[in-house]
Computed example of a mutant assay.
Amino acid sequence: MVAGEASGDLLASLLLQGARQRWPQLQARGIGGAHMEAEGFVAQWPSEALAVHGYSLEVLRRVAGIWQIRNELRQQLLAHKPDLFVGVDAPDFNLGLEEDLRAAGVRTVHFVCPSIWAWRPERVHKIRRAADHVLCIFPFEPDLLARHGIPSTYVGHPLANTLPLEPDQAGARRTLGLPEVGEVLALLPGSRGSEIQYLAPRFLDAARLLQKQRPGLQCVLPAVPAQYQRVRQLVREAGMEGQVQVVKGQSHAVLAACDVTLIASGTATLEAALFKRPMVISYAMHPVSAVLMRRKQLQPWVGLPNILCRDFVVPELLQDQATPRALAAAVNDWFDQPARIAAVRARFTELHHVLQRDTARLATDAIAQVLSR
Results as ranks from 00 to 15, higher is better:
342 A>R: 07
329 A>M: 08
304 L>N: 03
262 L>V: 11
132 D>M: 10
335 F>R: 04
96 G>H: 06
180 E>N: 15
169 Q>F: 13
315 P>E: 10
195 E>R: 03
192 R>V: 01
224 V>T: 03
125 H>E: 12
217 L>S: 11
362 L>M: 12
261 T>M: 07
242 G>S: 15
354 V>K: 07
365 D>Y: 14
287 P>I: 11
101 L>Q: 02
355 L>G: 08
298 L>M: 12
77 L>C: 11
101 L>N: 03
313 V>A: 06
157 H>E: 05
22 R>G: 09
348 F>P: 00
358 D>M: 13
141 E>L: 08
27 Q>R: 08
317 L>G: 01
136 C>P: 00
83 D>P: 04
208 R>M: 11
122 E>V: 15
191 S>G: 13
139 P>E: 13
154 Y>Q: 06
301 W>G: 02
41 F>R: 00
230 R>F: 15
181 V>D: 14
155 V>E: 00
246 V>D: 06
236 R>I: 09
266 G>W: 00
283 Y>A: 01
333 D>E: 15
139 P>L: 15
220 V>E: 08
37 E>Q: 11
361 R>M: 05
203 F>S: 06
300 P>I: 12
366 A>P: 03
131 A>T: 02
287 P>N: 07
26 L>W: 10
143 D>I: 05
246 V>K: 04
232 R>V: 12
315 P>G: 07
258 C>Y: 07
20 R>Q: 08
214 R>P: 02
307 I>W: 08
41 F>L: 03
3 A>N: 06
53 H>A: 15
305 P>A: 07
89 D>I: 02
365 D>H: 14
149 G>T: 10
366 A>C: 08
78 L>I: 10
228 Y>S: 12
232 R>A: 15
93 F>P: 00
71 N>P: 09
313 V>F: 10
278 P>L: 09
362 L>Q: 04
75 Q>N: 14
172 A>H: 06
106 V>D: 04
160 A>F: 07
54 G>I: 02
313 V>H: 04
73 L>T: 01
1 M>K: 00
271 E>G: 04
350 E>L: 11
159 L>A: 03
172 A>R: 00
348 F>N: 03
212 K>A: 12
224 V>M: 10
274 L>M: 13
345 R>N: 03
125 H>V: 14
335 F>H: 07
276 K>T: 06
184 V>T: 03
225 P>Q: 08
322 A>Q: 02
348 F>H: 01
140 F>H: 09
345 R>C: 09
249 G>R: 02
38 A>H: 13
204 L>T: 02
241 E>C: 14
359 T>R: 03
93 F>T: 00
234 L>H: 06
337 Q>C: 14
107 R>N: 05
68 Q>E: 15
116 I>C: 05
2 V>G: 00
324 P>L: 04
243 Q>P: 09
59 V>W: 06
151 P>V: 09
163 L>M: 09
